[in-house]
Structure formats: structure tokens, C-alpha cells
Design a protein around this nucleic acid. Structure first.
Lengths: 264, 264
DNA sequence: ACGACACTTCGGCCAGCACTGAAGTGTCGT
DNA sequence: ACGACACTTCAGTGCTGGCCGAAGTGTCGT
């Protein structure tokens, strides 16, 4: 009687129940394709174990494989998987930082990272803020950043997504700023950054911004992980076109995981 | 070195790795609060087992408890959890139907169900179609239903969400149709129905439509599960105001799970 | 042709966890 | 005050599944 004919979420849940597999998905969350050996070291397990993980993930359609010579490159299978990673990330606690390297790496990720097809971290939020301040995009009825206003906890009821839209001014000025707008572009999807707890642009506009930045040579993806590095040209570009001072002043201390305190 | 300081998705994944717990979440997916005993039978386990599940889910902030006398009502904690259920549901396969009761129940769910704060199933899609055909909402650059056009598989690259917006005509006519528009309403979030593989309205407008239907007494929630039943008044209301013939002609056969065929 | 390399499959080991019945706590009806 | 009821905690049991090393397959460099 119970749950028959319903959807069996547990088969996907089991895939997400292992730390190693989650690390693999997280490593792929920037949209790149990575070989099995890299994913094994990313997951912190031997090649044989990682191979089993990858097989299971591929069987369920969460990732796909691109065989290339003796390497086998894996990548996320479609944007819905990236969304799944994002949504779970918002509900999950942070892992404790156990080494200096991990600390600097975590900080780099907090600063700027690639989320499948758009920019996350402080840079993503800063760009979103800049676009709004300059009137290129606007929220529903022109409200400021909802999440920032409320400053809520994750479980506390922050509207999970807000829908901004591009203003006529945005349509006019954005192409000049290196952001090529795709022809069919209605509203702007925004999701909440799990490090910043603020809205940042995603969706088609987010993709356009990221590709614009990349083709202008402003940002480059770190070789081993999904952190984005802003180079000299990017720093001046952000300043001149967006009014963003980068890197940001280190006013915000490394804010620890704001999530669920245990036991009610 | 691996994954430190990153987000630990596995702790959430472990919660989703059990069929019983998933059934609990699914039972709560309509936004209601249910007592532990009901959730136990829904999950197909003894009360003691269910109690353990509920404790774990509550500890991680996925659900919250409302103690009322000797009953303890549980409900999802916030819309992000409902989103998580939706997102996973789209990637998960259907459970096999093992009984006649389960079959009719599954069919009722496919027909119309409540998804936390909006309508899903064929009814949700039908309403969305009706609103678009009558010019009350429109997609980016007025495209028809993207998912319907492509007819794609889940993993095949259907845009996971599209953003529609309300037309001026919609702002004028919707209130007369019993749909009270909230003041701040920019774009319309749409998500893809996991039974219909088509867009249906969610977000604020979805909530407004559902509450409009409910307060007009058109639909009622089934007592034991999240299926929505359309009564006489609802049938005529849907016909007169939306041009929807309900119940729909049974042209579309019970389409089986369209998901991942195993092994590439 | 040879070894080095990337990756997979297989067998065995061990930990974690879902499940239950029984016992305990708090609440409701009479 | 008493039993019925909703729910929780606890101790014991059994299975699922992650992990590794060793061995096997296919690919690349020289």
C-alpha cells in the first residue's frame, strides 16, 4: 500500500549517501569533464573504488562518460544534475577544514567559483549587485536583494529563488559590456549562493556573463578545482565596466557554516 | 586534501538513501503536516522505526515537528526541502505498481496533485496551457511550451526551468478568475512535471492559483495522500473560466517511466 | 614489441544502519 | 484513577554496501 507507483527517490538518494561520490559530483559541478584518476584523488579513494562509484553514477544517469584514448572523461549529465547539487548544497553543512591547503582552497571557492554554467561565490553576488545597482536588471517590483534584506537562515524561509528581469537599459548596455545576450531571454533566474546566502544570477544570463568573462580573458578556471581566478585584465575590466573593486576588501570574516545547530 | 571545507552533501544524501524516509518526505510533499503514525504506515514500517527516521530528518532540518496533545505533527521545513523533493523526483525512476489500490492511487496522482504550494500533474499542465493559450502568461519571446516541443528525455537536455511572465492581459483578467495576484510578482517560475514532462506553473503564481481553486471549493485534497480531487463546481469552473475539459479524455495512455534505460 | 599507464572487475573484509519487539513517557477519554 | 493511545528509546539481529589489493583489458610512448 505504501508508495507504490510513486517515484523512488531512494535510488538517487543512495548515490548521494556516500562522501566519495558526493565529492565526485562536487568536483564535476563546474561543468568540466574530468578523468577517472583525478576524480579518484578528489574523492580520496583508490582508483578501483572510484571506478565503482563512477559506474553507479553513470548507470543512474547522473554522469556520462567520454572515452578518449586511455582516459575516460566523466561529466555531469545535464543541468538537472547540477541543480540537484546546488539544491542539496544549500541544505548540507560544511565539512570541517583539516589542513592549510584545504583552507586556502575553500577560501578561493568562496571568493569565486564556476557553478556548472554560471559564476558563484562573492564574485557572482558582486556582479549581480552591480547589474541591479546600475539598473540593468531588476527584481520583482524593484525590491532589493531579498535574501540580503532578510538575512535569514537556510531553513528559515528565504525565498529559494527570485526572478529578476532585464530592463530595457540592460538590453541596451549589456552587449557593450561583453555580455552577449541570447535572443530568447525573458526573466533571469537567480539562485541563492550557499556560501554567501545571497542571490546571484544563473540561467541564460548567468551563462552569458560567464562566457563573456571567459572569452574576454578576465577569469580562468583553476586547474585542479572549480575556483575561478581573476587576472589583471579582469580586475580592471570589473572596475571599469561594473564598478567592482576586486579582490574585495576582507571585511567579511570567513563566516562559518550558518546551518542547522543540532537538536532543534 | 580532498573536499575539505567544501559542503558535505553526503549527510543529506544519507537521509535520502532510505526508501522509508523518502516515502515520508513524499507524503509530506503536499505541504501538509501529518502525525507520526500516518507517516509510519505511509513508509511501510513500524512506529518505532518511523520515529527514528523522523528524528533524523528533524535533526538535519528537513522537517519540523508541531506537538499537539499526544500527536506530533511533522511537516517539511521550508520550500527548499520541497524543491529538493521535486528535483530528485525528476531524476528518480518510478516504483513498480504492485497492487490495484496502488495503481488507482498512482493514476490519481498523475491526474492532479498538490506539490507543496502549487498544482502538479495533468491539471497543473492543463492550467498552464490554458493561461498561455489565452495570453495571460507568455514564455520568453512567446515561445510555446519548450518541453513539449522538444519532447526530450529527462537527461537529454530539456531546459530544467523556464521563466514565463504575466502579460498585462493576465494582470487584468486573472483576479476575475478567482486568482488573487500577490502584489510583488515579476516572473513566473515554472518547473517540469515529473509525470507529464511538461512545464507547469509554480512559484507565487502557482500558489495563487492553488489557493484560488481551493477557496473557490473547486478542488479538495484527498484525505490520505496528496492527490487532488476536482468536484462538480470545479469541473464547471475549469470549463467556464479556463476552457479546460475535466476530467481529460484518456487519450494519453498511462505512460510508463520515461527515464534512464540501464547501461548507456 | 615492450613496458608504462589508465581504468575496470573480482573476492574478501568490515562498518554502518534499518528493522523489530519490549519497555518507558506523556496525553486523552471516561 | 484507570486503561487506551501516540510516541519514543533501547538492545539485539541481519543485511547492504564501501573499501582495498590483485589481476585483467585496452591504449600510449619509445
Amino acid at each position: 500500500m505504501a508508495g507504490d507507483g510513486d517515484v523512488d527517490m531512494a535510488v538517487v538518494g543512495k548515490l548521494l549517501a556516500d562522501r566519495g561520490r558526493c565529492r565526485i559530483l562536487l568536483a564535476l559541478a563546474d561543468g568540466r569533464a574530468l578523468p577517472a584518476s583525478v576524480l579518484a584523488s578528489e574523492a580520496g579513494v583508490r582508483a578501483s573504488t572510484a571506478s565503482g562509484h563512477l559506474r553507479k553514477l553513470a548507470e543512474r544517469g547522473l554522469i556520462e562518460v567520454l572515452p578518449t584514448g586511455r582516459y575516460r572523461y566523466y561529466r555531469l549529465r545535464g543541468p538537472e544534475v547540477a541543480r540537484l547539487v546546488e539544491v542539496i548544497g544549500r541544505l548540507a553543512p560544511a565539512q570541517p577544514v583539516r589542513s592549510l591547503r584545504a583552507g586556502t582552497r575553500a577560501q578561493a571557492l568562496r571568493l569565486a567559483r564556476r557553478c556548472y554554467d554560471h559564476i558563484g561565490g562573492r564574485l557572482g553576488v558582486a556582479v549581480t549587485d552591480a547589474l541591479r545597482e546600475r539598473g540593468l536588471i531588476e527584481g520583482p517590483d524593484g525590491t532589493p536583494d531579498l535574501a540580503a534584506v532578510r538575512g535569514d537562515r537556510i531553513a528559515g524561509g528565504v525565498s529559494d529563488e527570485a526572478d529578476y528581469s532585464i530592463t530595457t537599459q540592460g538590453h541596451r548596455e549589456l552587449p557593450a559590456m561583453g555580455v552577449m545576450l541570447p535572443p530568447a531571454l525573458g526573466a533571469v533566474r537567480c539562485c541563492i549562493d550557499w556560501t554567501e546566502q545571497r542571490h546571484h544570477i544563473a540561467g541564460p544570463l548567468g551563462t552569458a556573463v560567464l562566457t563573456g568573462f571567459e572569452s574576454a580573458g578576465w577569469v580562468t578556471l583553476a586547474p585542479t578545482h572549480r575556483a575561478l581566478r581573476v587576472n589583471e585584465r579582469g580586475i580592471s575590466g570589473l572596475r571599469d565596466h561594473f564598478g567592482i573593486a576586486w579582490p574585495p576588501a576582507a571585511t567579511t570574516r570567513t563566516r562559518e557554516q550558518p546551518c542547522h545547530r543540532k537538536g532543534q
